[in-house]
Design a protein around this nucleic acid. Structure first.
Lengths: 291, 291
DNA sequence: AGTATATTGAAAAATATTATACACAGTTTA
DNA sequence: TAAACTGTGTATAATATTTTTCAATATACT
């Protein structure tokens, strides 16, 4: 009897089916036939589809325990939301022993939500185009970041350098970037990271580079850096976390995914380069042997 | 080119995202955030949820190619109908239009799994202890990373430098690290990142530092760096992804969570530092004004 | 069969929703 | 620096939706 979760509309209809009249049966059938979409439009649409009058629909909503047709619709939407909301982890408790309010869990929730939202906004076509662009070693690639994102840019650069030749990391904050622009040729690629607060220098760099025929790939946040207007491809990422700063986790994630894609595209070439690199490391004995 | 099936609302939003204005971005975010339910109510509900005016919603509907808001809603319902009646589509909720085998989705799955597994292994008590350790500005903090993790170390360092004084970043790869050890005092903290393949230098640094009474906090992978035997606190993180390299996403996540915790602990002090920093930036006009 | 009761839908009233007009603020351009 | 433009929200008009009223019709019961 005392069901915590409120019953669904479908359940209510089935429970009360016997109490329903002829016209209401007709209506109920239509609702269940294409549930829940058929009941998501206007009362008139539903009435017409069921070949009953609008008052019949309103009356049935009441009969099923709602205050009126709109209330029924709201309940239906909530139902739908519960059904299709992304199942991933929403109800999983991660660091189980930590209370929900612990910063670790709050941060984890936020990070996962950022990930989910960002993925929704990434167009796989864009992703593939960018991967292809970066896989073409005919053209040079320049990488630039801002104050905070510089480390992400560096991370990207470090890995890309293993994958292919023609990689350039533009120093952050320094005034040397115009020198880099001098070397850029039409068809080259500039990968820029610009998260709020957006930096003037980066906007100028983007302007000057694109003016020279360089293709700009931009990693930015959900609000969009002003450099986006110059960009061929833009990734809008979600970066909000319970902290005074923005999160770079999703940015790093996308960078890694791109690296994986490029690496796959260029495997023949990359393989040799990785091998040579390993040999170099062996010679310098930088690493410990790993069993 | 000529797509038989008409584009979904989500696709339209992504395609035209660049053409959208500030308020429209806000709106688009809300629509995508809880897609498609958030847009199934009245225009007013949606406007309020997005904190924009109703005309903005109506205008965007037009901009996206619908005759008005109701038309958009009808399209959305049809979309929903198609989705619900087609169970295969249900699994594509993630990066909707990307098939499950797309690298983006495979990578996302892996990253989320890494996150989940890592969080299970993190002891909140350890986390809190480390946060407390780093919040005590009496003692200096040294940060060191390896070839790949250096960028993460740098990220951590950059933010910590804003939060507190006494931060030191040990150059990676260089042979200067013994100089840093000279300055270390008992009670100081060394935060080290050592992911496979573990680096000899880092092990030696850990040995020498702990010998001087320094507390070692180690970020490593699930197998555990050899430096772990010297560490007071160890974070074992899951780092495997479908790629030739390991993922640093979870490492970065934990670093950010720690930053948030430390920042909360030291807010009184941090606040002033952040303020001063903002003023410095204002003077240098490095950033664009952000409204 | 005749009366009472329940069901139903047309029409109108009440209410909610959506679109439009317009003014203001911020930004860009000349 | 002013003028033109763009984007945005408030107020309001236009439109659609929902509810109510009420008469017509069907059904049940004596």
């Amino acid at each position: 009897m005392s069901n915590k979760r409120s019953r669904t509309l479908a359940e209510r209809i089935r429970e009360n089916f016997d109490e329903l009249t002829r016209a209401e049966h007709q209506l109920a059938d239509i609702i269940l036939e294409n549930y829940p979409v058929s009941a998501m439009g206007s009362i008139t649409t539903l009435a017409n589809a069921s070949r009953v009058s609008t008052p019949t629909v309103a009356r049935m909503a009441r009969k099923l325990g709602f205050s009126g047709f709109p209330a029924m619709q709201i309940a239906l939407r909530e139902e739908l939301e519960a059904t299709i909301s992304n199942p991933i982890a929403k109800h999983e408790r991660f660091a189980e022993s930590a209370p929900d309010t612990h910063i670790l869990n709050r941060f984890a929730e936020a990070a996962l939500e950022n990930m989910r939202q960002s993925l929704k906004r990434i167009d796989p076509k864009t992703f593939d185009s960018v991967a292809a662009l970066l896989s073409n070693s005919e053209n040079d690639v320049y990488v630039a970041g801002g104050r905070i994102t510089h480390t992400i840019a560096q991370y990207f650069f470090t890995h890309m350098q293993v994958i292919r030749k023609g990689m350039n990391l533009i120093d952050s904050g320094s005034s040397t970037w115009p020198h880099f622009v001098l070397n850029m040729n039409e068809g080259d690629v500039l990968v820029a990271f610009d998260i709020r607060r957006y930096e003037r220098d980066l906007l100028r760099l983007a302007e000057m580079a694109t003016a020279r025929g360089v293709t700009l790939v931009l990693f930015t946040d959900q609000w969009g850096s002003p450099a986006a207007r110059h960009a061929r491809h833009v990734f809008n990422l979600r970066i909000e976390v319970p902290s005074a700063w923005d999160s770079s986790v999703v940015t790093l994630f996308l960078v890694e995914a791109l690296l994986a894609a490029v690496q796959t595209n260029t495997w023949g070439e990359t393989r040799d380069r990785v091998k040579s690199l390993e040999e170099l490391f062996d010679k310098t004995k930088l690493f410990r042997k790993f069993s």
